[in-house]
């Protein structure tokens, strides 16, 4: 598969949300909510969840890193599914193909100059480049240190590496480990908890875990129920229910 250099790649086409064939055919959420179409919705969701996703931006090796690392950050446990089951790697790959992937609303004018951390991000790298260079550098490190790819390492070793990145003791060549870690952590959590239309939060698993009702957005009858949990399960923007 040919992979483009993120610095010279043409600006990718922005896929507008909810302009898929599905939503065009089936219309608004109001329609979904009031019509007996939950069965269709569930079938579509199942199909989407089972169809294997081929990454468009990440190489197979990069994607293997993403699968492994995001699952360590957000592991499956007694609370619910982990990052891979929720589709987080797919979410991140899809995000790289939106304006966000090329840092379209970041100020990216030179000169780029290092400074104190509290003055914020100062690297000349947009998310695509951060991932490409960061993963490459991290894999060089794991090979040097352990003779294997990150994904092939046992979970406790992966956790040691992630901890070193988070704490800033591991520098990925020109990228501070902490910067790479925060990018990965933030995108992982976005994938776990954004609407499923972006490729993550499969079967609304993220929202179910939190008791977040999604697109219901009408709580007139539950403003104060003396601390009782909100009773209805989540619904997505396209009407998918859990």
């Amino acid at each position: 598969m040919v992979k483009s250099d993120p610095t010279s790649a043409p600006k990718p086409r922005f896929t507008l949300p909810r302009r898929s064939v599905t939503s065009a055919l089936l219309g608004t959420t109001a329609f979904w909510l009031t019509q007996p179409s939950a069965g269709i919705s569930r079938a579509l969701a199942r199909e989407a969840a089972t169809a294997p996703y081929s990454p468009q931006f990440f190489t197979a090796a990069e994607y293997a890193f993403l699968m492994a690392a995001t699952e360590r950050l957000f592991p499956k446990d007694h609370n619910g599914p982990g990052a891979t089951e929720l589709g987080v790697p797919e979410f991140i790959d899809r995000q790289m193909q939106t304006p966000y992937g090329v840092g379209d609303n970041w100020y990216m004018s030179a000169p780029f100059q290092e400074g104190p951390a509290n003055l914020g991000y100062q690297l000349p790298l947009v998310p695509r480049a951060l991932y490409r260079q960061g993963i490459a550098s991290l894999e060089r490190y794991t090979h040097q240190q352990y003779g294997k790819n990150f994904a092939a390492l046992p979970a406790p070793t992966q956790d040691i590496i992630l901890t070193a990145l988070e704490g800033g003791s591991l520098q990925l060549e020109s990228i501070p480990g902490r910067t790479f870690f925060e990018q990965l952590r933030t995108n992982t959590l976005e994938g776990a908890f954004s609407d499923p239309l972006y490729g993550g939060n499969h079967n609304l698993g993220g929202w179910l875990m939190l008791g977040f009702p999604g697109a219901r957005a009408d709580f007139m009858d539950w403003v104060n129920q003396e601390g009782t949990a909100y009773p209805l399960p989540p619904v997505s923007l396209s009407g998918q229910t859990a």
């Binding site: 100020y107 400074g115 003055l119 914020g120 100062q122």
Partner: peptide, 11 residues
């Protein structure tokens, strides 16, 4: 006495 740096990402 510092060099001001751009606010590159909204936060």
């Amino acid at each position: 006495d510092q060099t001001a740096l751009p606010y590159r990402q909204l936060a």
